[in-house]
Design a protein around this nucleic acid. Structure first.
Length: 821
DNA sequence: AGCTCTGGCGACAGTA
DNA sequence: TACTGTCGCCAG
């Protein structure tokens, strides 16, 4: 075993027992699970220079203290329990006799560092540790469907299925509807799980995990819950897939069925799980159907992992950051902490205590250029490779490398806003280009080192991606992995900017972002200087027209070899990791607004686009999961036509007019018009505004619908997607209904056209054909207005059949939406 | 053991 | 009709 020979301890899991022990779980060379208990260390660090003799004496004499020892310029003070440590270091809930809310250490004028650190993280940090690959299984359970989700703990578990990595399957089903049978069912599950370390379930954190935990407790089954790595596959999928998914279709639903269809082309077993009880109660073949369904569903998780590799990716990330691959391991603050604390060992560095959230401290972020809108030809795009990580490296930015500020604005009475003060830059420091802060160059900062490894991994997948034709499945796979490392690398910056993190440093975070603003503006200015035309830029990318491919390549080279080195040297940067890359060219680019555009590739990093290459679409409704499908389809159609080079407005007006008629009069499917939005918080947390007359104002439609669903006992916890339709948009607030409550006949057709379907397409056409604004606008009106004179019968722009009037059936066998569906 | 960040668009409810 | 505040989702 590698762990043993290199003096490292290999662990597959570890947990705190809640008192004074940390339990280490390992796999020995035969693959057997071993448990070992070590002491939990409840520790904080105090600066020697801050600790007064009197306080030191107090601490030594205190019965709360286990002991203290010197470590370089720090005192490491070990408390007997975590509670005692918290008492000494956290702000007390109530004021003391003097009316002040001060902790013991605050009163002693010494700042405790890392006091809140979890005992497991403490152990992982202080020891040479290797995170082992867990034995993984996938789990899914079926429970009594008669019990509403909100009372799910009262539902009896009917069956479970477990599948391992190789596809070996286990399952069991409830024998009788009583506690003894359920007890047997769960005992079988726990005995099986005992051979695994990691349990993966879809929406596990929201359903399966709390469920088996609650039922086991209820039935008196004692298990050491923390002995497993519980991983919610859905949450992981969302985190990793968000930047890889192509259209809003993929985001509309994260139900397992929808995701597996999108990723695997495979549909969930055909069984209505909301009637699980009936299947079970019927017994015999019906009951077996339920079990088969349960097993197949579980196996989908394994197949999904085979197709995406996301769990493997998490494994890689966790091993690199000394973090366990469970749901918490996905958390950025957590794995960044793991990585940085390890890196800080032996550097005489410790980090602040974060018992409580210190409050938001906002800072300035990236620069987004107002785009040139409409149809643009031959646009070249360059972008900085891993911009924020490179900035961190180049200026050696890190909380502990921050030096003095040497310039700033002279604001106050008597000064103009552009007047600045300056001091000379001290030796051994480099200078931020715009905010006056300096960073030492005498040693390498923690952040810079951390970022280097992630950049290396990302480069590997990016190189592969660039060698493949854009849009192909291999390209997408490489893109997915490269995105995951990008997410991780950018997380380091994000965590520095997060007040929840012990590494939070507003100055450093803002310096990173503003370094990016300065660099991007350098590029834009240079392009203008070279006579090119800048059409857009966002954070780390510049969109430029008026250049040939060769010229643009030379332009990028010039920046890399002349401009950046010159400017960075002027600022005293110790190194230059800034690299601009020629990313792609579009022959047609439809620019709608900031962050919303569609482009047709000529090439991507030199790889020529093929017939099968899909266009790049960003930010538009097509990409969004909270839009109506009909809006996405229409917009997609228009975008594709525009990108093929058909820029004749008349054809588009006709196409829109046809769609308009179809939507107002033809047949539409519910799935075309359903809206689906996530509850971003619990229902009670939404702002409840009062109207001027003192009555309650309406909340957003999806929240109103969620309130209704809650009354029926449905799951409306944070994160739930609420599917709804608008049944009458003429009233304010609009009348809405849960999608499952109504049929297409109940949906407000004018609303569909005027608000759901057309606007997304209209905005695209408006920027492309500004001369046709009037016509495009007129097409958007369908509802007869009481104010307007009654339209002539047969007028092309007004639907003669108001809502509720029976519609004629469309001709047999004809697509109703002009063939777009 | 709850929490990467900022910038930005568009939908709605409500006000003036 | 223009504007404000809240919300969700997306770009980077």
């Amino acid at each position: 075993m590698r762990g043993a020979s290199s003096g490292r301890v290999a662990v597959v899991n570890a947990y705190w027992d809640g008192k004074n022990g940390v339990v280490l779980v390992s796999r020995d060379s035969q693959g057997r699970r071993q448990r070992r208990r070590v002491a939990a260390e409840h520790v904080c660090y105090l600066r020697k220079s801050e600790l007064k003799e009197r306080t030191e004496r107090d601490l030594r004499a205190s019965r709360a203290i286990h002991g203290m020892r010197e470590e370089d310029s720090w005192w490491r003070v070990r408390f007997k329990t975590r509670d005692l440590l918290r008492k000494a270091s956290a702000k007390p809930r109530w004021p003391g006799p003097d009316g002040e809310r001060l902790s013991y250490f605050e009163r002693a004028h010494v700042e405790p560092f890392e006091a809140d650190m979890h005992p497991v993280r403490r152990w992982l940090t202080d020891n040479e540790v290797e995170i082992q690959r867990p034995k993984r299984c996938y789990l899914d359970i079926e429970a009594d469907s008669r019990v509403s989700f909100s009372r799910k703990e009262e539902a009896r578990i009917l069956s479970w299925a477990v599948v391992d990595d190789e596809g070996k399957k286990w399952s069991a089903v409830l024998e009788d509807d009583d506690d003894a049978a359920e007890h047997r069912l769960l005992m079988k599950l726990w005995r099986l799980l005992d051979q695994f370390d990691q349990v993966v379930a879809w929406y596990g954190d929201g359903y399966d995990f709390p469920m088996i935990r609650a039922r086991s407790k209820l039935l008196g089954i004692q298990v050491q819950w923390q002995g497993w790595l519980w991983l919610d596959h859905l949450e992981l999928f969302k985190k990793m897939n968000i930047s890889a998914s192509e259209s809003g279709d993929e985001k509309q639903s994260y139900r397992l069925g929808a995701v597996s269809t999108a990723v695997l082309g495979e549909t969930k077993a055909d069984l209505d799980a909301s009637r699980s009880w009936e299947y079970w109660a019927a017994g015999g073949a019906k009951r077996q159907e339920l079990v088969d369904y349960n097993v197949r569903d579980t196996d989908l998780l394994r197949l999904l992992e085979n197709a995406t590799g996301y769990i493997e990716l998490l494994q890689v990330l966790c091993q690199a950051t000394t973090t366990f691959p469970d749901s918490r391991g996905m958390n950025g603050t957590n794995y960044v902490e793991g990585f940085l604390l390890k890196l800080a060992r032996g550097r005489d560095l410790h980090f602040k205590t974060v018992w409580d959230y210190g409050g938001r401290i906002p800072f300035e972020g990236a620069y987004v250029l107002e785009p040139k809108k409409g149809i643009l030809r031959d646009v070249h795009v360059c972008d900085f490779s891993s911009l924020y990580p490179s900035i961190i490296q180049t200026w050696n930015m890190s909380p502990e490398t921050l030096g003095p500020r040497i310039s700033g604005s002279l604001d106050g009475p008597g000064y103009r806003s552009d007047q600045k003060w300056h001091k000379p830059r001290p030796d051994g420091h480099c200078e931020h280009p715009t905010n006056g802060w300096t960073f030492t160059t005498k040693w390498m900062g923690l952040l810079a080192e951390a970022v280097t490894e992630l950049k290396r991994l990302r480069k590997h997948w990016n190189d592969l991606k660039a060698s493949l034709p854009p849009g192909t499945p291999e390209w997408k796979e490489a893109d997915r992995r490269s995105s995951a490392y990008k997410i991780a690398a950018n997380t380091f910056y994000g965590v520095i900017g997060s007040p929840f993190s012990r590494f939070f440093d507003r100055v450093v975070a803002e310096s990173v972002a503003q370094g990016g603003v300065w660099l991007l503006k350098l590029v834009l200015a240079e392009a203008e200087h070279k006579g090119m035309s800048v059409v857009f830029g966002d954070t780390d990318s510049a969109f430029v027209a008026g250049s040939t491919e060769k010229q643009f390549k030379a332009f990028v080279d010039h920046l890399n070899t002349v401009v950046f080195p010159r400017e960075l040297e002027r600022l005293g940067c110790p190194r230059n990791d800034i690299k601009l890359a020629y990313e792609k060219q579009f022959d047609v680019l439809v620019m709608v607004t900031k962050k919303r555009y569609a482009g047709n590739f000529v090439h991507y990093k030199g790889s020529r686009a093929t017939k099968d290459s899909k266009p790049e679409i960003k930010g538009l409704e097509f990409k969004r999961g909270d839009t109506a499908r009909i809006a996405r389809r229409m917009q997609e159609k228009v975008i594709h036509r525009l990108l093929t080079g058909d820029h004749e407005p008349q054809g588009y007006l006709e196409m829109v007019a046809e769609w308009r008629t179809s939507i107002l009069e033809g047949e539409i499917e519910m799935s075309d018009v359903v809206l689906s939005k996530r509850l971003a918080k619990g229902l009670g947390e939404y702002k409840a505004k009062k109207k001027k007359d003192g009555t309650d104002a309406a909340q957003p439609p999806h929240v109103e619908v969620a309130k209704l669903l809650q009354q029926r006992g449905a799951d409306v916890s944070e994160g739930t997607r609420i599917a709804y339709v608008v049944t009458d948009a003429t009233s304010s607030p609009m009348r809405v209904a849960p999608a499952d409550d109504v049929t297409i006949e109940d949906v407000d057709r004018h609303y569909i056209w005027e608000n759901l379907a057309y606007p997304a397409t209209k905005r695209v056409l408006e920027v492309c054909f500004p001369a046709y604004g009037k016509e495009l606008k007129a097409l958007g009106v369908s509802r007869p207005s009481a104010r307007r004179p009654k339209p002539e019968p047969g007028s092309p722009l007004v639907n003669p059949r108001a809502k509720g009037v029976r519609r004629r059936k469309p001709p047999e066998g004809q697509g109703t939406l002009g063939g777009i569906m």
